[in-house]
Design a protein around this nucleic acid. Structure first.
Length: 282
DNA sequence: TTCCTGTTGC
DNA sequence: GCAACTGGAA
């Protein structure tokens, strides 16, 4: 879709209309209509999918999502779980804090919202692990609300179609266009279309998101603290409780380095220290 | 190497 | 505003 709207920062009504038609046309023919979390109206299931999809490719979520839902089919089952149980199912997804956040959210929903996922963006944003993008997507996909939000696919579409001649582009500039183009009668379908189009953009062209002010590369993983964190959590999941000295030995790292990371994991609610032993929190 | 339906804490 | 967080696939 080399749209006529390409490059226009100030599109008129006709440009908007053409853009919408192009995106919807693409969606009808090439939309990812088979994604499981698009076939449900259960807000809890959609919450799970949205947390999983943060910085994680769809293909990997298609595997983990049904497993997670099968083990924790409703909010109360997740709220009543232990952290170790959740991390065990979460294993392989990365960004393990999301697992903690998801479980905490389930507890809050049960204790303060009668077990019902809130439909208000501001309330959703108040939950741990939910920022603007996830709050917006839950409002849209779980409740069909005409919320305005930006994530990586949406950002790519708008930069490509409306800012082809600009570097850099900020989300503040994109947001009004997201609002203008939004189909307020069918927000859910519209955002599916937008994101699906964005997901295939940039296969042949350089990633348009590199022209975003919010774009940055990730540092190398090999040898990083992230890698050691992952290893420590993996060991604790396998062993349950461990003597700290044994844990240090198993990581093969300097005691000081492992110790620092262990303390960070304590601060973030992953693990608990007791005397000379360490275990997953709870 | 690059990217992925971001959020958080400083 | 910016670094940290995580793992897998092309």
């Amino acid at each position: 879709m080399q749209g006529t709207e390409k490059g226009k920062n100030q599109p008129d009504e006709l440009d908007i209309r053409r853009f919408q038609e192009n995106v919807l046309d693409f969606y009808r023919r090439n939309g990812r209509h088979d994604l499981l979390w698009r076939k449900t109206n259960d807000p809890y299931h959609i919450l799970v999918s949205e947390i999983m999809l943060q910085q994680t490719q769809v293909q990997r979520v298609t595997v983990k999502y049904p497993q997670f839902i099968s083990v924790f089919p409703d909010v109360s089952s997740l709220a009543g779980s232990t952290l170790a149980e959740v991390l065990w199912v979460w294993k392989g997804m990365g960004y393990n804090r999301r697992a903690i956040a998801l479980r905490t959210i389930a507890g809050l929903v049960v204790s303060r919202f009668s077990g019902l996922i809130p439909d208000d963006e501001a309330v959703l944003s108040g939950f741990p692990g939910i920022g603007k993008a996830t709050a917006g997507s839950i409002a849209v996909f779980a409740f069909n609300r005409p919320a305005v939000f930006i994530e990586t696919n949406i950002r790519r579409v708008f930069i490509h179609c409306f800012f082809s001649d600009r570097v850099p582009v900020s989300d503040r500039e994109i947001l009004p266009l997201v609002a203008r183009t939004l189909d307020r009668e069918h927000p859910r379908e519209w955002y599916y279309a937008l994101m699906d189009y964005g997901s295939v953009l940039g296969r042949r062209i350089p990633n348009p998101n590199r022209r975003s002010t919010h774009y940055h590369r990730q540092p190398a993983f090999e040898g990083s603290d992230r890698q050691l964190r992952g290893l420590i959590l993996e060991l604790l999941l396998q062993e349950g409780t461990m003597i700290i000295n044994d844990l240090v030995t198993r990581t093969g790292e300097q005691p000081g380095r492992t110790g620092e990371i262990l303390l960070a994991l304590v601060r973030e609610g992953f693990v608990t220290l007791e005397n000379d032993t360490v275990r997953l929190h709870n």
